[in-house]
Amino acid sequence: MCLAIPVRVEQLTPGDNAIVNLGGVRKEISLSLVEDVAVGDYVILHVGYALQKLDVDEAEQTLALFAELNAHTDAQLADGSLA
């Protein structure tokens, strides 16, 4: 029920709607709960509505944090401080 997924907006359509790409399938969703959405943006889709825009910079930063944590582990493995 609460499952929702990030989808890319492909086209804006009349009535505050948009066509999104849902894993290769094109689907029309409502944008009435969000503001300033442009083609190319990612939105979180839930029961036919975009709930929120996905902040791509923040997503990249979170991924960078995971990568950094990983590099840190490798370094510790190399110097023997992580048994």
Partner: peptide, 23 residues
């Protein structure tokens, strides 16, 4: 899928789990 698959990486998951086990 973009912004889904990257957050399911098995190697990174094991790494975070290793930090959890250590801390």
């Amino acid at each position: 899928m973009k912004y889904v698959d990257e957050f399911r990486d098995g190697e990174l998951a094991k790494n975070i789990a290793a930090h959890i086990a250590r801390e």
